[in-house]
Simulated assay, not measured.
Amino acid sequence: MADWRLNTQMSRHFTGEGDLIKLLEKLKMVARLQKIEDVVILVPLYLEGEALTIYQQMRDEDKGDLASVEQRLKLAFAESPLEALGKLASLRWTGESVDVFAAEIKRLAGLAGYVGRSLNMTVKLYLVNGFPEEISANMQRITEINTMKVDDLLVHARVLVKNVKDQIMAAAVSGNTCTRPHLNDERQAEWNV
């Protein structure tokens, strides 16, 4: 085992509220960076409240198995595949960065049970269709869209989003009106000039 020091006060503890999947991914990433082979020893350090209670009620042999701990915590606190699919179906871009939007699509698709190639295709489909009509239509015109990787599609999406923002800014400066994508109230202020 590597020599490491961990300050659990620097990270939020999981109580049952929030994103369990992100916490587990973060723990695995920290363990990998610190060369900690047994990730499961980190889990109880970041649990409080209901989450810690669930962990404490597990059998000792299951507490030592990361897959068992993950499965039990996901069963108690993660979105079900149906919940994730429902959120995915209604997910629309609201002005956040393209990468954040794509990450949320990927997270929900993964929770809904998509893996491997079907996960990548699902991310591409929902990414293209989750944007406002102008951006979505331009993305659908990309000839190699069916064979391109998600990262390559993100490059196209970033350019299209920037172009739309530039058009809105140019219209505002010239005094013309410009149709803007539908944004929620939180993101609307970023588009106002």
Rank of each mutant, 00 (worst) to 15 (best):
A2T: 12
R5N: 04
L6F: 02
N7W: 07
T8Y: 03
M10G: 03
H13D: 10
H13V: 09
F14A: 00
F14W: 09
D19P: 04
D19M: 03
L20D: 10
L23W: 02
K26Y: 06
K28M: 05
A31P: 01
I36L: 14
I36V: 11
E37G: 15
V40K: 01
V40T: 05
I41P: 15
L42R: 12
V43D: 09
P44D: 01
L45I: 04
L47I: 07
G49A: 06
E50V: 04
L52K: 12
T53E: 11
I54E: 14
I54A: 11
Q56S: 08
Q56A: 06
Q57E: 15
M58A: 07
M58C: 04
D60H: 11
D60T: 10
S68E: 15
S68H: 03
V69Y: 01
R72W: 01
L73N: 00
L75A: 13
A78W: 07
A78K: 10
P81L: 02
L82T: 05
A84H: 02
L85S: 05
G86L: 03
G86S: 08
A89L: 11
L91R: 10
W93S: 09
D99R: 09
V100C: 06
A102K: 08
A102T: 01
K106D: 09
R107H: 03
R107C: 02
G110W: 02
L111C: 08
A112R: 00
A112H: 05
G113R: 00
G113T: 00
G116N: 12
S118F: 09
N120G: 13
N120M: 12
M121N: 05
M121P: 09
T122H: 05
K124F: 01
L125G: 15
Y126D: 11
V128I: 14
V128E: 00
V128C: 00
N129L: 13
N129P: 11
G130C: 01
G130L: 10
G130V: 09
I135V: 01
A137V: 03
R141F: 10
R141T: 07
T143C: 08
T147D: 14
D151W: 03
D151L: 09
D152M: 08
D152E: 15
V159R: 06
N163D: 08
N163A: 08
V164C: 13
K165G: 00
I168S: 15
I168M: 13
A171T: 04
A172E: 13
V173W: 07
G175V: 01
N176I: 00
T177Y: 08
T179R: 13
T179N: 14
P181D: 12
N184C: 14
N184D: 15
R187G: 04
E190M: 06
W191I: 12
N192D: 14
